[in-house]
């Protein structure tokens, strides 16, 4: 059983933000009080109530305008580095059927900062008041009931795909081959290590700093990129035991 995965084809994302709202609708998460700061990316970042956010990045390359869109979310790593930031064995659980990395009531007992800083993708967010740490749970409830995650169902263009990991990997490889014709620099991001496989049309860094696993400790992180990837590379089956 290799669980589930997302395949996210960024060549097709229009940043309609249907996924950003569909996530909040399903989970009934509140909207945030924001201001326009000169960008369409809003809320400006992930938060404990914004578990996915569409990142907007404008780049002019060789005189040609590009607008890169990244619906950012937890990658549900095959061997989740955030587990290394936890002290209790079951405060971060992995659903054996789907592979969803799920925070639960015991996660609250952990050091939120330790968990947060161990994520190579800078995803988990801590509620300032309650110190509760949050992130995407793969809509594990929906998935177990045979539905698509809310974000995937809401996607109009085929950017967000979800299914058995093997099928998603195959889809990703096929899509990469097709994308190469139009975008020679297209690539898959960390596809062997994560359950949210992004296909970029250009270098991942053009989308956002943390689209690819963090290149090195930029803050009080427990993991370097090398360490994180070494950890990620462990065979998934072995991890599940």
């Amino acid at each position: 059983m290799s669980g589930k995965s997302f395949f996210v084809d960024l060549t097709k994302c229009t940043a309609c933000r249907g996924c950003q709202v569909a996530c909040k609708q399903w989970k009934k998460l509140p909207g945030e009080k924001t201001r326009n700061t000169g960008s369409h990316q809003n809320p400006p970042d992930l938060s404990d109530v914004t578990l996915r956010v569409v990142r907007f990045s404008e780049k002019e390359i060789g005189g040609k305008m590009h607008w890169f869109f990244l619906p950012d979310q937890c990658r549900h790593c095959l061997d989740a580095p955030c587990k290394s930031g936890a002290t209790l064995p079951d405060s971060i659980i992995v659903d054996p059927d789907t592979g969803a990395v799920i925070y639960n009531e015991k996660t609250a007992k952990e050091s939120a900062e330790a968990i947060r800083s161990s994520c190579p993708y800078n995803i988990p967010r801590v509620n300032k008041k309650t110190k509760v740490i949050s992130k995407c749970d793969m809509c594990n409830d929906r998935v177990k009931a045979g539905k698509l995650p809310a974000c995937v169902q809401s996607c109009p263009t085929g950017t967000m795909n979800f299914g058995d990991r093997d099928a998603m990997l195959a889809l990703a490889k096929k899509a990469l081959a097709e994308a190469k014709a139009k975008y020679p620099d297209a690539q898959l991001v960390d596809e062997e290590s994560v359950r949210v496989i992004f296909l970029t049309q250009d270098k991942p860094g053009l989308y956002a700093k943390n689209l690819m696993a963090d290149a090195g400790p930029t803050g009080p992180r427990l993991y370097t990129r090398q360490e994180a990837l070494a950890s990620l590379a462990r065979p998934f089956r072995a991890f599940l035991g």
């Binding site: 998460l29 509140p30 740490i133 409830d141 539905k147």
Partner: peptide, 19 residues
């Protein structure tokens, strides 16, 4: 809108209940 509100805490029973 509770402190949890289904956020982050994908409590197993609650998660199934939404379904």
């Amino acid at each position: 809108s509770t402190a949890f509100g289904g956020i982050g805490f994908a409590l197993k029973p609650a998660a199934l209940d939404r379904i």
